[in-house]
């Protein structure tokens, strides 16, 4: 057990190192001169030489990578080209917003999606199944930003109920928070519910087909009992993967929604940095998202171990 956990953690560290190296490599070949970006374009050639040396750009790429990694591990994330301030500060302001949004939307969408998934699986072929499955499939096929624009049009332009943009934390201004959060949250939850419903339904159907369910039925057990004791327990295990996936998307998943509703989160920051070729910020964003994904995979694997005794350590 401990060996397995150690091995998984080591794997995660290796993947993170690889990701960080690839990010560094990719971003360092970008056609943007770091000296001019950091110190402005009025640098004289002599100053340029000095600054070039001071930034360590004359050293081989592996050395630079080592230095960059050491800096990151020490907590120095570099300086943003666009904002001219430490990346840590820039990211720190935004990351809270995005994480708040995704955690709340996950907390709402999972119970709902699981409920719909169980209903559609148990009532397979009846009208409840047809309606919910159809809706989930349609919702899963429409891009998030299209849903967001339609929602914005209905509630903001037509009905004039809600403001079109802005964001405030509940502990800052509760009224504004509720008014600004409804539409983006609705869009995020809608997407989440569609995905969870589909996944729950298919894994429930898989569980219903199993031999032990047939045995339970032929023993004459009540259908409710079979669903609660046998199907749900086994059918909901794959949902863990989905929770992991959802956590993994915590930082990058709401780019479109943030863009439509002008929410100052990580998504907006990423798009801005890409448009401005703000290299240090892009690097940190990719690293953060990758870290998030790796950790959530790790978490998922451990959760499986804890939940399902049949999963062996191989």
């Amino acid at each position: 057990m401990i060996r397995y956990i150690g091995k998984r953690i080591a794997q995660t560290v290796i993947v993170m190192l690889l990701v960080s190296f690839i990010t560094f490599l990719l971003v360092s070949v970008m056609p943007k001169d770091p000296v001019y970006s950091l110190f402005g374009s009025d640098v004289t050639p002599d100053e340029y030489e000095v600054l070039y040396k001071r930034l360590g750009l004359d050293q081989p790429i592996l050395v630079r990578y080592g230095k960059w990694l050491a800096d990151i591990l020490r907590g120095d994330l570099g300086t943003s080209y666009a904002y001219r301030m430490p990346v840590g500060e820039v990211v720190g302001k935004k990351i809270g917003v995005t994480m708040y949004m995704s955690i709340v939307s996950t907390l709402i969408s999972f119970p709902l999606g699981m409920l719909f998934g169980v209903i559609t699986a148990v009532k397979r072929g009846k009208w409840q199944d047809n309606v919910f499955t159809f809706l989930a499939n349609i919702m899963g096929s429409i891009p998030g930003f299209v849903i967001a624009i339609v929602v914005l049009w209905v509630f903001c332009v037509q009905l004039k109920w809600l403001p079109s943009s802005g964001f405030a934390f509940p502990w800052e201004d509760f009224g504004t928070h509720i008014r600004t959060i409804i539409m983006p949250m609705f869009c995020l939850v809608l997407g989440g519910v569609a995905g969870v419903t589909r996944q729950t339904r298919s894994s429930m159907l898989e569980a219903i087909r199993q031999d032990y369910v047939r045995t339970a039925r032929s023993k004459g057990l009540k259908e409710n009992y079979i669903i609660n004791k046998h199907v749900l327990r086994n059918g909901l295990v794959p949902i863990i993967t989905l929770i992991g996936g959802r956590l993994a998307m915590m930082i990058g998943g709401s780019v479109f929604i943030e863009n439509v509703f002008s929410i100052p989160g990580m998504g907006a920051l990423m798009v801005n940095s890409v448009n401005k070729v703000d290299v240090p910020v892009i690097q940190v964003c990719v690293l953060l998202t990758a870290g998030c994904i790796s950790l959530s995979y790790l978490f998922t694997d451990f959760l499986y171990l804890a939940v399902d005794p049949r999963i062996s350590l191989q």
Binding site: L18, I251, S294
Partner: peptide, 22 residues
């Protein structure tokens, strides 16, 4: 497999954005 694992750890949208910016 390592290649797959590494690219699975970078979320699609972030990777796309980075590649497009390059």
């Amino acid at each position: 497999l390592g290649y797959c694992e590494t690219f699975n750890s970078i979320p699609g949208i972030a990777l796309c954005l980075t590649l497009v910016s390059m």
